[in-house]
């Protein structure tokens, strides 16, 4: 029987490949989710029902259904949704990211041959909904006097949000946001069910080839744990770096 070391030396190249994709999926989804989340939060607190209701509906749907169901739905609702999104997003995304992004369908096929962008869109929408609620709570936790002081100086509503409320809200929600980022990384393992070749996918493949369940899953666990620990440490670093006396969790801890 091969030693653990031999097994690891064979599976590690695949694990690294999977890890890279896990990282890519997580970073992309979280970043898009951040923009979606902040936008949805601002829409939800708006007085205008045309902004408020769609945001509320979106948040309820994505927080109220299982992520796995969302992934499968997206995956099999292809090609309809896919074509529309592909037309909308290919060029702007290519411009934005600097490499070719191809969200295209092969007409007539039932499932998508490369579901990567399917799951990224689902993940972004899913984490966006959770982040929206985090941001909304954060924004509403800032005392109304802050906005009043801003408006009384002659700042517009948008300027008040941008320069006064959102910077404070960010500091308040950092711990909750860190938690959501970690959720997102862990949830990305669900992408394996639609054959996206991320870390969990390669783990399952490796196990089915080498039958060394315990060792291989243990290794995967360590990789996920390292990733989430690194993330939460760096969030703590940023929290401390941007902390301000009297604001947020880090701000209430006196700096010695």
């Amino acid at each position: 029987m091969a030693t653990t070391f031999e097994i690891y030396s064979r599976v590690v190249p695949f694990m690294i490949q999977g890890f890279k994709l896990t990282l890519f999926i997580s970073i992309t989804s979280v970043s898009i989710g951040l923009i979606i989340g902040l936008t949805a939060a601002l829409m939800k607190i708006s007085k205008n029902p045309l902004l408020r209701y769609p945001a509320t509906g979106y948040i309820e749907v994505f927080r109220g259904t299982p992520l796995l169901v969302q992934i499968l739905f997206m995956s099999f609702a292809y090609p309809t949704i896919y074509d529309v999104l592909g037309d909308m997003l290919n060029d702007p995304l290519t411009d934005l990211l600097g490499f070719t992004v191809n969200i295209t369908s092969t007409p007539g096929t039932f499932t998508n041959p490369d579901p990567l962008w399917d799951v990224i869109i689902v993940f972004a929408l899913n984490t966006g909904a959770y982040q929206a609620e985090i941001f909304r709570a954060g924004i509403q936790s800032i005392p109304t006097g802050q906005a009043e002081a801003g408006r009384s100086l002659g700042l517009t509503y948008a300027q008040t949000m941008r320069y006064i409320i959102i910077p404070q809200a960010f500091r308040v929600v950092t711990p909750a946001l860190a938690g959501e980022f970690i959720n997102m990384i862990l949830n990305s393992s669900l992408a394996s069910v639609v054959a996206v070749q991320e870390l969990t996918y390669w783990t399952r493949q490796s196990v089915s080839i080498y039958y060394r369940t315990l060792e291989i899953w243990f290794l995967t666990g360590i990789i996920y744990l390292t990733l989430t620990l690194t993330l939460s440490r760096s969030m703590q670093y940023f929290e401390a770096k941007y902390s301000v006396p009297g604001l947020g969790v880090a701000g209430t801890r006196r700096k010695g």
């Binding site: 005392p143 006097g145 802050q146 002081a149 100086l153 006064i164 404070q168």
Partner: peptide
């Protein structure tokens, strides 16, 4: 917003921008 520039307001709770 133009009018408000000409009216300064001082609040009971100060409302300084905390950040």
């Amino acid at each position: 917003n133009k009018i408000r520039q000409e009216m300064g307001m001082v609040f009971q709770t100060f409302n300084l921008f905390m950040h």
